[in-house]
C-alpha cells in the first residue's frame, strides 16, 4: 500500500501552562475517514487546527503526502505553500458556516472563489461549476445569486461544503459539521457527506462530540480526554466494545430513543 496521506507524530499544543493536546500520533490513509470524539474541552478542535496548519504545535510534526511534491511537513512549509495547499488539496468545514463563508457575496461567488483563486477567469464556466455543485449539495439552482445571509442554517452548511469541495480536495477537515443543526437537517447533511466522501474518494478528519455522527461517517475513531488520546481503533470496535473507562462512560451516555 502507498504512504499514509496524513501522518501525525507526537503532536502537542500548550496554551501557557494548560496542555490542550498531548502527544497525539496517528496515520490517515487515502479514502479513510477518521473521527475525533470526546467531551467539550478535550482538545479536539485544537488538534484539528494543528493538523490543518492553522495552529503551530509546540511539539511533534504533521506530514502530508502531496499529490505531486512528495511528503511535506505541514508546519515547515512556507506560508505561501501552506495556504496554497489549504485552498487546493484541502478543505476545512467550520462548525459555524458564517466563519467559512463570505456572507456578503452570493452563493455562486462563494463556490467560485477557490476556482478563481487558482486562476479560473471564465465567468460562464465558473457559474456552470457553481450550478453543478448547488445541485450536488441539494440547493435549488435559483438560489445561486442569493447571499448566504438569506439561507437557513442547514443550507449554509451545505453551501460551505460545496465551497470546499469545488476544488476537488483530497483531504477535508471538518469541525462539528452538523453541530447546532436540528436532527432532520443533520440527517440530510450526514447523508450528503457520506455520499460525497465515497463518491469523491475523499479522506477526512472529522471532529464531533456526537457518537451517532461518528458511527455513521467514520471508519476509525480516536477518543480524546483532557488533551490525550485514550483509545483509538475501528469505529464499530470502539463503540461496541470500548476498552477505556472514559470511552465506556461516553458510549453509555448515548441517550436511547
Amino acid at each position: 500500500m502507498s504512504a499514509p496521506l496524513l501522518s501525525a507524530r507526537g503532536v502537542t499544543k500548550r496554551f501557557g501552562g494548560r496542555i490542550a493536546c498531548r502527544d497525539v500520533s496517528f496515520d490517515l490513509w487515502p479514502g479513510e475517514v477518521l473521527g475525533i470524539v470526546g467531551e467539550s474541552g478535550s482538545g479536539k478542535t485544537t488538534l484539528l487546527n494543528c493538523l490543518a496548519g492553522r495552529l503551530l504545535p509546540d511539539g511533534g510534526s504533521v506530514a502530508y503526502e502531496t499529490q505531486s511534491a512528495g511528503t511535506v511537513d505541514v508546519h515547515h512549509l512556507s506560508e505561501a505553500r501552506r495556504r496554497l495547499l489549504a485552498r487546493t488539496e484541502w478543505g476545512f468545514v467550520n462548525q459555524d458556516a458564517r466563519d467559512g463563508l463570505r456572507m456578503g457575496v452570493s452563493a455562486g461567488a462563494n463556490i467560485g472563489e477557490r476556482l478563481m483563486a487558482v486562476g479560473a477567469r471564465h465567468y460562464g464556466d465558473i457559474r456552470r461549476e457553481a450550478v453543478d455543485w448547488m445541485a450536488r449539495v441539494e440547493i435549488d439552482a435559483d438560489r445561486l445569486d442569493d447571499r448566504p445571509t438569506t439561507y437557513s442554517g442547514g443550507m449554509r452548511q451545505r453551501l460551505q461544503i460545496a465551497r470546499n469541495l469545488v476544488s476537488k480536495p483530497r483531504l477535508v477537515f471538518m469541525d462539528e459539521p452538523t453541530g447546532g443543526l436540528d436532527v432532520s437537517v443533520q440527517a440530510r447533511i450526514l447523508d450528503l457527506l457520506r455520499g460525497l466522501v465515497e463518491g469523491l474518494h475523499l479522506s477526512a478528519v472529522l471532529v464531533t462530540h456526537d457518537l451517532g455522527v461518528a458511527r455513521l461517517l467514520t471508519h476509525r475513531l480516536m477518543v480524546m480526554q483532557g488533551g490525550a488520546v485514550v483509545e483509538q481503533g475501528l469505529t464499530d470496535q470502539v463503540l461496541d466494545d470500548p476498552q477505556d473507562a472514559y470511552t465506556q462512560m461516553l458510549v453509555a451516555s448515548i441517550l436511547p430513543v
Binding site: E79, R87, V105, A109, G112, E113, R114, A117, R121, L144
Partner: peptide, 16 residues
C-alpha cells in the same frame, strides 16, 4: 502571496 482570488470574486459578484 499574490492571493488575488477575492478581487475576482468581487467582479464575479458584480456580473451576477
Amino acid at each position: 502571496l499574490s492571493e488575488y482570488g477575492v478581487m475576482q470574486v468581487s467582479l464575479y459578484e458584480s456580473i451576477a
